[in-house]
Computed example of a mutant assay.
Amino acid sequence: MTLDALLARAARRLFDVGSPSARLDAEVLLCHVLGVDRTWLYTWGDREVPILERALFEALLAARASGQPVAYLTGEREFWGLPLATSRHTLIPRPDTERLVEAALAHGASDQGRLLDLGTGTGAIALAFASERPGWSVVGIDLSPESVTLARHNAERLVIDNVDFRRGDWFTALNVESEQSDENGGERFDLIVSNPPYIAEDDPHLKRGDVRFEPHSALVAAELGLADLRHLVGEARAHLVPGGWLLLEHGHGQGAAVREALAAAGYVDVSTLRDLGGNDRISLGRHLEA
C-alpha cells in the first residue's frame, strides 16, 4: 500500500470516530513511525510502506482512534517552534498557551530580568520565554517530580541554559538563601506566569478529547476552578519586585473573576487578553508595593 493510500484510509478511520484533526493526526503518526517530516510524505506519496512500519503505524492509529492523545503516542509536541518531549505525567502544551508567552515577552522586553513559571509541566512556557530572552534568569517549578525531570530533559535537548527547574508546591521551592532574596528571605521576580489547574471538578469537558488522558491534578481546581488562581494572586505579591507583573492563564469564562481577585489584592493595570479564538484567556496585573 502506498503512503497516499494508507494516509487516506487512516484519516477516514479517525474521522469516523470523531477526530477533529483526522488527516493531521494520521500524518503526524506516520511521520513519527518513518522518521520523516510531512513534506517528505507529500513528496513521496507513491512509495509503498514497509510491512514493519505499517504494523507500527496501525498500532498507533488504533490507540489514537481510542482517544489517546497524539502527543503521548509520539512523545513530542511542538510549542513556540520548540520540539518538546511529552509524557503522561504532564499536560500537553497547547497553542492557546503561546498567548501567555507573547504577553510575558511584551511585559519583559528588557535585556535582563527574572521570570518565574509556576506549574511548569514540560517546561513549555519557561523554555519558550528563555529562548527569546537569553539574558534573563528563568525559574520553573512543578510539584510533580516526573514533570521536573522532563522539563530539565527538554532544556538539555534544546541547549537552553538560562532556566532552573525545581520541584515544589507553588512558591515553596524558592530559595530563601538566593542572591536574589530580599531582606525577608524570599526570591523576587520581574514576571510571574502560570497556567495552573482551572477546570471545575464537574466540568463535562473532562470526559472529552485529550483531557481524558491528561493528569487530573494538573487540570482540576476547587471553587469552580478558581482556587489555585486565587491562591497565586494572593501569594505572588511577596515574590514580585515593585512594578512586577503577574500573568495567569485561565478558562474562557473566568476572566471577570480573576480580574476581580487581582484588583482586590491591590494589583493595578489589571486587564484580560484573548486567545486565538477570541476568548478571555490571560489576566494580568502589576504589583506596585515593595
Rank of each mutant, 00 (worst) to 15 (best):
T43Y: 08
D228N: 08
P145R: 14
L276S: 11
L226N: 04
D203R: 02
G251I: 01
G278K: 11
A155G: 15
P69N: 11
E249C: 12
S194E: 01
L276I: 06
A65F: 12
N154L: 13
G35D: 10
G285C: 13
E78F: 12
L30M: 14
F171M: 01
A65K: 06
A65D: 13
R157Q: 14
R38M: 06
D111T: 15
L116G: 07
A173W: 11
G278V: 07
R38P: 05
F129H: 13
G225Y: 05
P20Q: 09
V163L: 04
L34P: 07
G253R: 13
G244H: 11
I282Q: 07
G119F: 08
G108P: 12
H153W: 12
D117F: 03
E183Q: 14
D210Q: 03
D111Q: 15
A218C: 03
E78Y: 08
L82P: 03
N162A: 08
C31I: 02
G285T: 13
E214S: 01
L56G: 15
T74I: 00
G119C: 10
R286V: 15
A236N: 13
L84F: 01
E201M: 04
G277R: 06
S181C: 11
L229Y: 03
A227H: 01
R237D: 00
Y72I: 00
T2M: 00
G186I: 07
L224N: 15
F57N: 00
N195F: 00
V33G: 00
I92D: 15
T97D: 06
E156W: 03
G244P: 09
W136A: 10
G185K: 02
G18C: 08
A221M: 06
D142I: 10
R259E: 15
H250A: 08
H153A: 15
Q68K: 15
V70S: 07
